[in-house]
């Protein structure tokens, strides 16, 4: 079992989470050329090593998170909320007296 430290719920079994995919994928604007959509929807680095990937805490807070994980040995290096604003707010609240 992989243990994922959810930023909202604490450390939980990975079976509570649903795997999303490569977190480096950014969807282009809707009117972007087809090549950009082809790249975003179908093409993957498929890294053997440390990658950023999305997971959803489906059986918990249902939030999307970004996990930095080694795909060769499943070691997790960092976890943060997928939503940039929430990630920033969380970092600030942990860093000072808010």
């Amino acid at each position: 079992m992989i243990r994922i430290n959810c930023p909202f719920c604490g450390e939980r079994d990975h079976s509570e989470f649903s795997y999303g995919g490569d977190a480096s994928v950014k969807y282009p604007p809707l009117d972007a050329p087809a090549e950009q959509w082809l790249e975003a929807v179908f093409q993957r680095e498929n890294i053997d090593g440390v990658q950023f990937e999305t997971w959803q805490h489906l059986q918990g807070c249902r939030m999307w998170i970004v996990v930095e994980r080694d795909t060769t040995n499943h070691e997790i290096h960092s976890v943060r909320p997928a939503h940039e604003g929430i990630a920033q707010a969380l970092a600030e609240s942990e860093g000072g007296d808010v």
Partner: peptide, 13 residues
Amino acid sequence: DWYKSYAQRGNLP
């Protein structure tokens, strides 16, 4: 196992 992996070992769930 529902998540990407190059490890040739399985998980208990």
